[in-house]
Design a protein around this nucleic acid. Structure first.
Lengths: 176, 176
DNA sequence: ATGAATGCAAAGGTTTTGCACCCCC
DNA sequence: GGGGGTGCAAAACCTTTGCATTCAT
């Protein structure tokens, strides 16, 4: 019915604000992504740059699920030379290059970006710890399509986010 | 399967940025809402004010589906004396009073508010004209719940937005 | 009267933009 | 060499906050 959720972050005391690291970055995959970036850029008459790749690499290494601001901070930490403006500009390029994609709005009302992958999935966000899980349901997709067809809409995309509490109960939220 | 969509805005040349007016404000209903507001306020030891009601009235008259900024602008136009801060503060009060509710993030990444109603529904946003339609599908709700149960999540709420083009084809988008 | 609400303006936070300089193709 | 890219700082935006004043109860 639904494909298994992404692995839950282990050892995550429910209460941490920004978990949801995916699998480790496969070194092999990295070249593939870099190739994709280079191809996109040259195809568009744009230029490859160290910065763009470093930013992409950082995103890839976290597995996605970052907001722009979070990315700016990580970049600043890892590569102090790179400015915030470049990060914002790169996000757009990486989205166009289909390396990143806009994903969901978190409860803090920010857009979250994640790795582009061709498989579609939706999200469950834990309202206790902020962890982001993925789900996919053919049943839901089918029902959606039926509605759209019935109403003569042409779907372009959708965003389906469920806010829920995960079973591993929050012991206590950090007082803030 | 799905309840009929809200009526489509009539005479809407697909291409206008901010349509989605609901049904006309029923004069009768207005009093009911005002009553609800007064009840909520006095119940909380808060005070009724002209401004709060004027803002609520404006929202009611549009049928919802407004973002904060849009509301500020409308208020400024209709009641130049009311400041933006008051609008923002009122939005919170009106949400607490269950007159308004936070609804969906539009493509411009802002939170949209709509009238509070007890029936749950989700949204279809036309990517051509920006019109917002509503839908509800028991099938989807059921599938959602099944997934959550299977994965031991406790749902709190969800946000399901489909971006699509409505059948009434855009003749032409305003050039910018 | 008295605590709450308002308006204004200032502060905050995030994202975009202008511009001089730099670098990839 | 040239057009795109980058960094920095300023500008834009949206939202929140502080404070003196006004208002509802």
């Amino acid at each position: 019915m639904s494909k298994p959720l992404a692995k839950r972050p282990r050892n995550l005391p429910c209460g941490r604000p920004a978990p949801a690291e995916h699998d480790a970055p496969k070194a092999a995959k990295l070249e593939e992504w870099q190739g994709r970036l280079r191809a996109y850029l040259s195809g568009k008459g744009l230029k490859y740059s160290e910065q763009r790749w470093k930013i992409a690499e950082l995103i890839l290494s976290t597995g996605g699920h970052l907001d722009a601001q979070g990315l700016v901070e990580r970049v600043k930490k890892a590569h102090p030379g790179i400015g915030a403006a470049t990060v914002y500009r790169s996000i757009k390029v990486l989205c166009d290059a289909r390396i990143l994609k806009e994903s969901l709005s978190d409860s803090q009302r920010r857009v979250i970006y994640e790795l582009f992958d061709d498989e579609h999935h939706d999200h469950i966000v834990c309202t206790d710890c902020g962890a982001i899980f993925e789900f996919h349901s053919e049943k839901i997709e089918a029902a959606q399509n039926a509605i759209l067809e019935e109403q003569q809409f042409t779907q372009t995309k959708h965003r389906h986010v469920i806010y829920a509490k995960c079973a591993y109960k929050a012991e206590k939220r950090p007082s803030k």
